[in-house]
């Protein structure tokens, strides 16, 4: 796939209270943002299990956004700090798998930041377009045999 007409697929794990509501606000305010992102709602960014991230990459995501409330604003007090810790370690580990650290993005988007959500989505899409497709092999045994 040439990177010009590469249309990345992004997955967003958004916490209900801030980021999902922020995304909702972007919607109700009729802000347009790049349609590449698919959103999965979780109660808190602290619910984002690294398994989900890896699963999403495996299934074909070119980039993954984890988004929660700003530090100190988590509806559950500190879930976003757990997300931050996991993000930093996971990002480091993913690089060992050849997955650029830019492909796993963590952002704090409050319920009021519809515009920020719009920006993050647009910017992230651009960034992933530049990085190109991830091309994770899907699991057919023959595919793995030979590079």
């Amino acid at each position: 796939m040439s990177s010009e007409n590469f249309d990345p697929t992004l997955i967003g794990f958004l916490c209900t209270w801030c980021s999902y509501t922020g995304a909702d606000l972007a919607g109700t305010a009729r802000m347009t943002y790049s349609p590449n992102i698919r959103i999965i709602r979780v109660m808190c960014s602290g619910r984002v299990d690294p398994q989900f991230v890896i699963k999403a990459f495996k299934e074909g995501a070119d980039g993954i956004l984890i988004s929660g409330c700003h530090p100190g604003d988590c509806h559950y007090k500190e879930g976003n700090y757990k997300a931050l810790r996991r993000h930093r370690l996971l990002r480091k580990m993913l690089e060992q798998f050849g997955i650029e650290k830019e492909r796993l993005r963590l952002e704090w988007v409050s319920a009021a930041e519809g515009a920020k959500f719009q920006n993050v989505c647009d910017e992230f899409t651009e960034q992933i377009k530049e990085l190109g497709p991830l091309n994770i092999m899907k699991g057919d045994i023959n595919e793995y045999r030979e590079a």
Partner: peptide
């Protein structure tokens, strides 16, 4: 889940 390192980055 990922099974291996991305082939093209080895």
């Amino acid at each position: 889940i990922l099974r291996r390192k991305r082939m093209e980055t080895v």
